[in-house]
């Protein structure tokens, strides 16, 4: 077994030893230094796209006069790095990035909160789409769909300011299983599935999936495709599976894990646990 080399870095004046390659974001978390992020999720591949987590980095042993900006979520720790998470340069640029994000998603609670925290009281910019999409193109929805759910139902189309998250050709929603993981991870809360006429719908992606309703109480349980996928993975009777979590419990069946899976709509227990622990943590 290879032993990962330990490196010493300094974050905001505090020394820490971490395995080489640990991201600066992770190392900062160990020191309980909070660096804001939007496109980052512990269980998904790093993207480095929102740039909110930018930090100022220098390597005094190599060149004391040079410092540069990089995003903490993707930048690996290497020996001797000196990192400032709240230097004037970082704060100035981060504030500007938040202003730009606000122009993209003016209705997002989370971004409004960030803006207020950073002293932005009045929006200065108007985005190309005037903020109608409310999407900051962080790609979390796409990454959770591809990497954890493995449905690969959505992706980016277009580039630059015309980029958007869509289902194939904006019409083929049939890869979607209706798990709503994308809705759960979306930082701007712009992904909304609706139940209409007994179907789970997201019109702009062409999604219309048949819903299963609890035979006992009538509550929605999940989409039928998702139920089919779950049946392949766990041992459960059709009768119990079609019940909502509450009614299943009433049926005196100890299936806590199953409840979680179906309620949240994830394909694997560990996926669910990881996601929820991140959300609450």
């Amino acid at each position: 077994m290879t032993v990962t080399k330990q490196v010493e870095i300094i974050i905001d004046g505090r020394k820490i030893r971490v395995p080489q390659g640990t991201t600066i974001l992770k190392a900062a978390a160990m020191l309980e230094i909070r660096i804001p992020t939007l496109c980052h999720h512990e269980e998904l591949s790093p993207s480095g796209s929102c740039r909110l987590c930018i930090v100022e980095i220098s390597n005094p042993s190599q060149n004391p006069d040079r410092s540069w900006i990089d995003s903490a979520c993707v930048c690996p720790a290497s020996e001797g790095l000196n990192i400032k998470t709240h230097s004037p340069r970082v704060l100035k640029e981060r504030k500007l990035i938040i202003e730009l994000l606000l122009s993209r998603a003016p209705d997002s609670q989370q971004i409004m909160k960030l803006a207020l925290e950073n002293g932005i009281t009045k929006p200065r910019f108007t985005a190309a789409d005037e903020g109608k999409s409310n999407c900051i193109l962080c790609g979390l929805c796409m990454r959770v769909c591809n990497e954890l759910i493995k449905a690969e139902a959505i992706g980016f189309s277009g580039r630059g300011i015309k980029k958007e998250v869509v289902s194939p050709f904006k019409i083929a929603g049939d890869l979607c299983i209706g798990c709503k993981a994308c809705e759960a991870v979306c930082p701007t809360g712009v992904i909304n599935f609706k139940i209409e006429n007994k179907k789970l719908r997201k019109q702009d992606w062409g999604v219309a999936l048949e819903m299963i309703f609890c035979p006992d109480c009538g509550q929605p349980v999940g989409t039928s495709v998702q139920m089919e996928q779950l049946k392949e993975k766990i041992t459960i009777t059709d009768e119990l599976l079609s019940c909502c979590p509450a009614c299943r419990r009433k049926k005196n069946y100890s299936v806590r894990t199953v409840l979680h899976r179906t309620a949240k709509g994830l394909s694997d227990v560990s996926d669910y646990n990881r996601l929820t622990s991140k959300e609450t943590g």
């Binding site: 994000l101 630059g160 980029k163």
Partner: peptide, 21 residues
Amino acid sequence: LVEESCGKCTPCREGLWQLLS
């Protein structure tokens, strides 16, 4: 450049658009 930015990161995608505006 606004046309050719891939749109992945915020500074390039949104910043260039604001510069152009």
